[in-house]
Design a binder for these strands. Structure first.
Length: 587
RNA sequence: GCGCUAGUAGCUCAGCUGGAUAGAGCAACUGCCUUCUAAGCAGUAGGUCAUAGGUUCGACUCCUAUCUGGCGUACCA
């Protein structure tokens, strides 16, 4: 909406510049394209056109160009609503916000939850892979960033018109899986999640830790684990039985964590089922000369010409590697769901892996390989440094979630709002989840971040709970307004009663929302939406604090302000799910 | 060594594909609850945007070099 207004003005100004250039330089002058900016202060208008770059072409000082343009444009009979402002070398426009508010009101009332969506990826099939846990331990904070990103980006893509398929790849085979199995076999005494009351993934994780301890005392431990893997690959009944049992425990536990944190997938892939698929493709590629064989029998690809070194794709004993399996998985995925694009949400430490993977798939002749994208995200560190499993500083996902929820719960109780909220536990968990998602998503994905659990649970400032609180405040007003509806029955929303400076800013901010969704979709970046939401709610908060809404004296003003509030409400309701924030009617 | 990536206020982060005095939050200090939920609002203080050059009318933004940190460079995943 704002975009449209900006472009209208741009066309007008650009045309005038072209005219001036023609007058001075004659036909065919090379005139640079106009850039559009936002003035730093509201008093300076809403749209800015810097004119520096025309000084040389037109042989005039930018201020004079601005003045001349202003005169010329004002004399035009056909121009958009708005007012031109001279600001030195800038020509600015103050748009007609009242008119914008009317359009906005109509649009949002008509479109409701559809407001903000666009067709950028209309008809595109996009597959997105994320989470990809191992079945030897529970989820930790690192997975949570991955999951938050995966869920958020896929929601954002849907809002941009894409047909999205969320997939998970369960890493359920390998030596590391055998380690927890072996430790359980040796020290488990037949424990089960039922007998211990432990969540399955935590129970398995306990034996993974146990293995690490045992490994220090017995140097045959790793060899025993490797031997177990061989047995597993040979289909040894006893090993498979244990594997199935323990995998089941972990997967049950993971399912519970996913459910709690609102993570879901359209399809699960299991490494145990896909690891052999890549092998055939590699052998075929070997025949075609994409790969070569070393004397020891291992298969390689030489990527030195593109600065990616040499990479092994099949072990000398013929078994598959991570790379082998990923080749197969990608191919089978494209068979399952012929995507236009596949996004891998994987930590930045695997950038090299994906460069190589994508290159290999291209070399094997898959044309869709150029549509593969590694959404690389940075590490989650702690205020004291890195998370290290050896030092026991890894933040467990379930524990973190539960502790956040209990803090939220206490807060509700302290404020004596148990009866106001829709279920104490339900609300506390919704607050905890939103706090977590928002904290993880507000940082640009590519950057490493510091996760301070103390700050994450703080409900002040730029946090999920703050956003939820604003949503709840507006909802509360809307409810009260509904109760007194009869008093206002004869009054229509009229934007001309929105005269406060904050109201101007609010209207502009709401109008910006569709562009924000588009940008987030284009960049695969949820943090864009986070910043936007915080700006919008902060703006609302100030306005709401300084002005009476429901209790304004003039009923026309009440209706206009409630109308504006409802637009803010609809906008944040639409934006919240894109960044994993739960909307609460009351908190 | 080589490759990738980052370095903005004490801390955590923004900074719109170069533009008008670099913005928030937290922490610190200070105001504001007989008034629509104070999980709030406002104010004060805090910066030679790692350093040095370069390109440009103009650089936090682009280029080069240097310093510092992270990651990778496994027949682990």
């Amino acid at each position: 909406m704002l975009q449209k207004i900006r472009n209208e003005w741009k066309t007008i100004v650009q045309n005038q510049i072209d005219e001036m250039a023609k007058g001075i330089l004659g036909e065919g002058a090379d005139v640079p394209e106009l850039t559009i900016q936002v003035p730093p202060k509201p008093e300076l208008g809403d749209i800015a056109f810097p004119l520096f770059s025309y000084a040389k072409v037109l042989r005039m000082a930018p201020n004079k160009i601005a003045a001349a343009l202003k005169d010329n444009i004002e004399s035009l009979s056909d121009k958009p609503e708005g007012e031109l402002i001279l600001a030195g070398p800038y020509l600015n426009v103050k748009i007609d916000v009242i008119a914008l508010a009317d359009v906005l009101y109509k649009t949002i009332k008509e479109n409701g939850s559809e407001f903000g969506k666009n067709k950028q990826y209309d008809g595109k099939k996009i597959m997105i892979e994320f989470s990809c846990p191992n079945t030897n331990k529970p989820l930790h904070l690192g997975h949570m960033r991955n999951d938050s990103l995966g869920m958020s980006v896929s929601s954002i893509l849907m809002a941009n018109g894409a047909d999205v398929q969320r997939v998970n790849l369960i890493n359920n085979r390998g030596v590391h899986i055998c380690k927890s199995m072996l430790a359980y076999q040796k020290f488990g005494n037949g424990e089960t999640p039922e007998s211990t009351g432990m969540k399955g993934d935590h129970l398995v994780g306990k034996y993974y830790v146990k293995f690490a301890q045992w490994e220090k005392e017995d140097d045959t431990a790793v060899d025993q684990a490797k031997a177990m893997l061989v047995k597993w690959e040979q289909g040894d009944e006893e090993v498979l039985k244990l594997w199935k049992t323990m995998n089941g425990w972990t997967l049950d536990g993971l399912a519970e964590s996913y459910k709690k944190t609102g993570v879901s997938f359209d399809k699960y892939y299991y490494e145990s089922e896909t690891y052999k698929l890549g092998k055939d493709k590699v052998l075929k590629g070997l025949e075609e000369g994409v790969f070569y064989k070393e004397e020891d029998g291992s298969v390689w690809i030489d990527l030195e010409d593109i600065n990616l070194d040499k990479k092994v794709v099949l072990r000398k004993d013929g078994t598959s590697l991570y790379m082998t399996q990923d080749i197969g998985t990608a191919i089978s995925r494209h068979d399952d769901y012929p995507f236009d694009s596949l996004i891998y949400v994987v930590a930045s430490e695997q950038q090299y892996h994906f460069k190589v993977l994508f290159h290999i798939l291209k070399s094997l002749g898959y044309t869709w390989a150029k549509e593969l994208y590694h959404l690389s995200y940075g590490m989650v560190n702690l205020p004291d440094g890195k998370m290290k499993s050896r030092e026991g500083t890894v933040v467990d996902a379930d524990e973190l979630f539960d502790s956040l929820a209990s803090i939220a719960k206490k807060e509700i109780q302290d404020k004596e709002r148990e009866n106001q909220v829709d279920g104490l536990d339900k609300t506390s968990e919704a607050i905890a989840l939103s706090a977590l998602n928002y904290y993880l998503l507000q940082v640009s994905p590519t950057k490493d971040m510091v996760f301070d659990s103390k700050k994450s649970i703080s409900f002040n400032g730029n946090t999920g709970p703050y956003l939820q609180y604003m949503g709840a405040r507006i909802s509360s007003m809307v409810r009260m307004f509904e109760e007194q509806k009869d008093e206002y029955a004869s009054i229509e929303f009229d934007s001309k009663y929105l005269t406060q400076p904050e109201e101007r800013e609010l209207i502009k901010s709401i109008a910006l929302y569709p562009e924000i969704v588009e940008k987030a979709g284009k960049d695969f970046d949820p943090s864009v939406i986070c910043s936007y939401l915080y700006d919008l709610t902060k703006l609302f908060s100030k306005w709401y604090h300084d002005n009476k809404i429901l209790k304004a004296e003039d009923k026309n003003v009440v209706v206009a302000r409630m109308g504006l509030s409802s637009l803010v409400l609809q906008t944040i309701k639409n934006a919240f799910p894109l960044v994993g924030v739960t909307f609460l009617e009351s908190m």
